[in-house]
Write a protein that binds this DNA or RNA. Structure first.
Lengths: 211, 211
DNA sequence: CAAATTTTTGACCGATTGGACAAACGTTAG
DNA sequence: CTAACGTTTGTCCAATCGGTCAAAAATTTG
C-alpha cells in the first residue's frame, strides 16, 4: 500500500497517468490561470474521473507545483546555454532565436509562466529571487565582459535580458492580439519568421559596437 | 424608479459609487484575473456590501466590461498621438517614453489588459480585430512613410510596434520578476529610468538610418 | 486458481460562488 | 408631516468548488 505520492518510487502506470494529467493541466492552467481552472476541467481533459485524478495528485495545488517545477528547467535552458566561448553577437542572436522558437513551440508553457508572474508569483517567488536571479546575474557578468572587450555596445545587461524575454514571449503570451492585428494574411504561420527577422535587426544593429 | 443601469441618465451618487466600484474592481481584477476575483472581494475593497454593489452593476461581467471599455481608450492614447508632423526618431522615442511612463504609473491597467489577452481575449476580441487593428495599420503606414523617406531604417512596422508594447509593458506585467532579478539595490525606484535609458539606446541605435 | 494490491468510480460533504429579493433605511419634494 | 423615490442590507438560493470515502473493478503476486 503506497498511497503517498511523495516517494520517488512509482509504478509504470503511475508515471503514465501523472504525465497525462500534467499535459491536461498545462492546457487548462495556461488558458484560465490557477484559480480560473477547476479540477473537473483538468480531469475531463485528461480523460478520467475527478477522484481518479485526485488519486495521483492529492490537491489541485500539487498539480500546479509539479507543472511549475518542470517548467522552470526547460524555460531557462536557452539562457543557461548562453556561453562565453563563441562570438558575442552570434551568441546573442542565437539566444534570441531559441527564445522565439520556444514561444512558437511551447506557447502554453509561456502563458502558464506569465499567468503566475502576473498574479504576483505567489508560488514561485523564492525561485525568482534565488535561482533565477543568480543565473541572470551570472549571464549579465558575461555580457558585461563582452562590453568591456568592445565586442558589443555598452548598455545595461539586465535590461537587455529583460527586453529579449519581453519581445520573444510576447509572441506566445499575446498571440491572440498579434494575430488579430496582423490579420489573416500577415498573421499566418509566417509571422514568426517575420518576427525573427525584425528582432534580429532591432537587437543586432542596436548592439553593434560603434566602429 | 430607475433601476435600469443601462440608461445614460444617472444621479450624482450613482456616478460616485460606480466610480468607487470600478476603482476597487481594477485593483482586484488586475491581480487575480476575472474568474479568480469574487464579487465579495470587490465589494469589500469598495467598502460596501455585495447586494449594494450588485445594485449598481447587475452582473460581475458588467463591471469587467465597463472597466475594459474605459481602459482601451486611455491605453491606446499614446499610439494615437504618434504623429507625422515631428521628426520620426523623436516621435518614436517619445512614444516609447510615454508607454514606459504608463507602465510605471498605471501598472494595474496594464495587468488587467494582459490578463484578458492571456486568456484568449474572450471579451474584447472584436475590439482587437476591429478598432485596434485599424489604428495599428494606420500608424504602420505612417512609419512606412518614414522608412521610404529614409528617415529611419527599413523594417517591419507592425513588429516594431509589437516590440515597443512588449518591452514597455514588461515593466508593469512582470514587475515582480523584474524587481526580484534586479535585487534590492538596482530594483528600486530608479529601475524605470534605467529601463528608459536602455530602451532608448536599443531602439534608436537600431533604427538609425545607415548614413 | 486465490489473495493481495493497485486503480477507478459513484456518492457525498462543507465551503464558496454569483446572484435574487423583500424589507429596512435614507432623502427629498410637496 | 407624509408620500415617493433612491439606496442599503440581511437573508436566502441553486450551482459549483475542492476534496473525502467506501466500495467496486482491475491488476499483480504467489
Amino acid at each position: 500500500m503506497n498511497t503517498s505520492m511523495d516517494a520517488p518510487r512509482r509504478t509504470r502506470i503511475q508515471q503514465e497517468k501523472r504525465e497525462l494529467i500534467l499535459e491536461a493541466a498545462l492546457e487548462v492552467f495556461s488558458t484560465h490561470g490557477f484559480r480560473g481552472s477547476t479540477i473537473d476541467q483538468i480531469a475531463e481533459a485528461a480523460g478520467m474521473s475527478k477522484p481518479n485524478l485526485l488519486y495521483y495528485f492529492r490537491r489541485k495545488e500539487d498539480i500546479h507545483e509539479a507543472l511549475m517545477q518542470r517548467l522552470l528547467d526547460t524555460w531557462l535552458a536557452p539562457l543557461r546555454e548562453l556561453d562565453d566561448i563563441g562570438d558575442p553577437l552570434t551568441e546573442l542572436r542565437s539566444y534570441i532565436r531559441r527564445k522565439l522558437e520556444m514561444a512558437r513551440d511551447f506557447p502554453r508553457e509561456s502563458r502558464l509562466f506569465a499567468n503566475e508572474i502576473l498574479q504576483g508569483a505567489p508560488r514561485i517567488m523564492p525561485l525568482l529571487a534565488g535561482e533565477l536571479k543568480t543565473l541572470v546575474d551570472e549571464k549579465a557578468a558575461v555580457i558585461k565582459g563582452w562590453m568591456r572587450a568592445g565586442k558589443i555596445a555598452r548598455t545595461d545587461p539586465w535590461h537587455l535580458i529583460f527586453s529579449i524575454w519581453a519581445t520573444t514571449q510576447h509572441y506566445a503570451d499575446f498571440d491572440v492580439q498579434v494575430r488579430a492585428v496582423l490579420g489573416p494574411n500577415r498573421g499566418g504561420d509566417g509571422r514568426f519568421e517575420d518576427a525573427a527577422r525584425f528582432l534580429e535587426q532591432l537587437f543586432l544593429e542596436g548592439l553593434k559596437p560603434k566602429s
